[in-house]
């Protein structure tokens, strides 16, 4: 009988990539339910469609690259990319938006760079940015949160809107959709209104960051804290992003509260929480050293604020993440931890 002689260690914790991905997916689910409560079935339909397209794209690319299907289709990474991207797409966007975005994310953003573990950019954000700059109209037609109080829009109605461009009550997408709170804020600030005027005049803004949105943000936060508690992600990146937005947001808010919305608006508005806990923490494209992750998070926070306050787009999470993805290898090189037995301050 020949004995097996693998290198040590001879035991393993049993942890797999799929376990990590499944936990992130699980942490996302409360927020998806909340989102559906406020904005209808669109997100769930988009998510299912995205997952299907993602698995198909992944399988196609694995076949072309002659990689085994089972371990990679089962690792959950494609599913997670699809879910995150679907989360960023307006709930009533036509089906081909989701299909194009997800296929682009998986094929170009992931597999053309070498597949799992080798993509320098967050695939979901690659897909999102492609959609945002190619189809700005479809990508900015969001639903106002209180629409469901006025209209009854069921699952089948939503399916019709997404797949057949068939709108109930004789409505059109233009009539149904509205801007996001961040978008509305940017537009109104451009009209020389003060922040308090804007927020009082429009029910869209809710208590501090947008009706509906702020609650989705809360559930995302809860999921994110769960991930930190479970050590699926480390605290460094989320804290650095949120902390940076808080510090910069407070500074400008205190200087001029009429022109600059409160830091809470920046933290709970838009995709900040989603980015801080679920997107920027994608391990493959993020910085990997503890100190590096803080630098990386601060960078994302700064870019988000700068683009939101003075740039051309209402939200900037995707751009911020992609820009810092590029910097991650350099950050890692300069933030190596001090190794046991090495003098402090050297290295």
């Amino acid at each position: 009988m020949t004995l097996q002689t693998p290198p040590p260690p001879h035991i393993h914790s049993g942890l797999r990539i799929s376990h990590i991905m499944l936990q992130v997916i699980a942490a996302l689910i409360p927020a998806i339910i909340c989102y559906t409560w406020f904005f209808g079935w669109g997100l769930i339909i988009n998510t299912l469609l995205a997952v299907l397209v993602a698995l198909a794209s992944e399988a196609l690319m694995l076949k072309l690259r002659q990689r085994p299907l089972r371990p990679f289709l089962g690792d959950g990474s494609a599913v997670l990319t699809a879910m995150l991207l679907a989360f960023c797409i307006p709930p009533l966007a036509p089906w081909w938006i989701t299909v194009l975005g997800v296929a682009f994310a998986l094929i170009v953003g992931k597999h053309l760079y070498g597949g799992l573990g080798y993509n320098p950019f967050n695939p979901a954000m690659v897909g999102y940015v492609m959609l945002l700059i190619s189809f700005p109209l479809e990508m900015t037609s969001w639903m106002p949160p209180f629409i469901l109080e006025q209209l009854e829009i069921g699952f089948v109605d939503t399916l019709g809107m997404i797949f057949l461009n068939h709108f109930p009550y004789g409505l059109s997408i233009d009539a149904l959709s509205s801007a996001t709170p961040l978008d509305a804020m940017k537009t109104d600030l451009g009209l020389n209104k003060t922040v308090s005027e804007i927020m009082e005049s429009n029910a869209l803004f809710g208590d501090f960051a947008g009706t509906g949105w702020e609650w989705v943000g809360n559930w995302l936060l809860l999921g994110g804290v769960y991930l930190i508690y479970k050590r699926v992600i480390s605290w460094h990146i989320p804290l650095a992003i949120i902390g940076t937005l808080f510090v910069i947001g407070s500074f400008f808010f205190l200087m001029d509260p009429d022109t600059y919305p409160s830091p809470l608006f920046h933290i709970f508005g838009g995709a900040t929480i989603l980015a801080a806990f679920f997107i920027a923490t994608d391990p493959v494209s993020a910085s990997t050293t503890p100190r590096g992750r803080i630098v990386y998070g601060i960078g994302i926070g700064i870019i988000i604020y700068v683009i939101r306050a003075w740039g051309g787009y209402p939200d900037a999470v995707a751009f911020a993440v992609l820009l810092m993805n590029m910097a991650a290898p350099t950050i890692d090189y300069y933030t190596q931890p001090r190794v046991y037995g090495h003098a402090r301050g050297k290295d």
């Binding site: 393993h12 990474s77 080798y118 480390s234 391990p283 493959v284 993020a286 990997t288």
Partner: peptide, 13 residues
């Protein structure tokens, strides 16, 4: 023990 087939590193840290 470990799986026979190692997946790529995802830099999870």
């Amino acid at each position: 023990s470990r799986d026979e087939y190692a997946m790529p590193c995802i830099r999870c840290g």
